[in-house]
C-alpha cells in the first residue's frame, strides 16, 4: 500500500522508533526513510556518528540510539524531510516532537495548532513550544510541539490556521 499512497503502515513506523525507555531518557532522531534511494546527507551531517548509511549511498540509514543526542541537525539536512525528533524526558504526560515545516506563516511559540497524522488528517490540537529557523537550517524551520503521549506515533505534521 505504501507504494500506492505514500502513507507508511503502523508497523513500518514502529520499526523506526526507539524503545519508550530510550525516548524517556532524552531526544532521539526517528528517520522515516523506508525505501532505498541514493542519498546520505544524514550520515554526513551527524557529528556524533549516530547515523550510518555506508559506502553504498543507496542503503537505508541505520541509527544508533545510544549515540544519537537528538540535536536535530540531520532533521534540517534531510532532503526528504523524513526525520523527526521525539523526547519523552520532559513530562510524564506529553512528549516533545520536533518536525520540519517549510510553510508560511510559521506558527508562533505558545500557539495551538492542528496536529496532523501521516495522511494529513486532524488528530488533536498541539502546542507549539519553539520555532527554530537559524541560517544553518537553510530555510527548513524546525517546530517543536508538545504532544499527548498517546499520539506519539500519530502526529507527524501541523496545520497553522490563519
Amino acid at each position: 500500500m505504501f507504494e500506492k499512497t505514500g502513507i507508511p503502515s503502523r508497523d513500518m513506523i514502529m520499526e523506526k522508533f526507539p524503545s519508550m525507555d530510550r525516548i524517556n531518557k532524552g531526544p532521539a532522531a526517528i528517520v522515516e526513510c523506508y525505501r532505498q534511494i541514493p542519498c546520505n546527507p544524514c550520515e554526513t551531517a551527524c557529528r556524533f556518528k549516530a547515523i550510518r548509511v555506508g559506502e553504498d549511498i543507496n542503503n537505508i540509514p541505520q541509527i544508533n540510539f545510544d549515540k544519537c543526542m537528538g540535536c536535530a541537525i540531520c532533521l534540517s539536512k534531510c532532503p526528504g524531510l523524513a526525520i523527526m525528533i521525539a523526547d519523552g524526558s520532559k513530562s510524564e504526560d506529553t512528549v516533545e516532537i520536533k518536525i520540519p515545516y517549510e510553510f508560511l506563516p510559521l506558527p508562533e511559540e505558545g500557539q495551538l495548532v492542528k496536529g496532523l497524522n501521516r495522511e494529513g488528517a486532524y488528530i488533536t490540537d498541539v502546542k507549539v513550544l519553539k520555532v527554530t529557523n537559524p541560517k544553518s537550517f537553510d530555510r527548513t524551520p524546525v517546530i517543536t510541539i508538545e504532544v499527548d503521549r498517546k499520539f506519539l506515533y500519530e502526529i507527524r505534521n501541523i496545520r497553522v490556521e490563519v
Partner: peptide, 23 residues
Amino acid sequence: APKIGGYLVHASKIRRMGVPILT
C-alpha cells in the same frame, strides 16, 4: 502507473499535508 514513481519520501511529505495520491 499502479505505484508512485517518485521517491517515497517526497510522496509522504505531500500526503501528510492531506493531498491524496491516486495511482
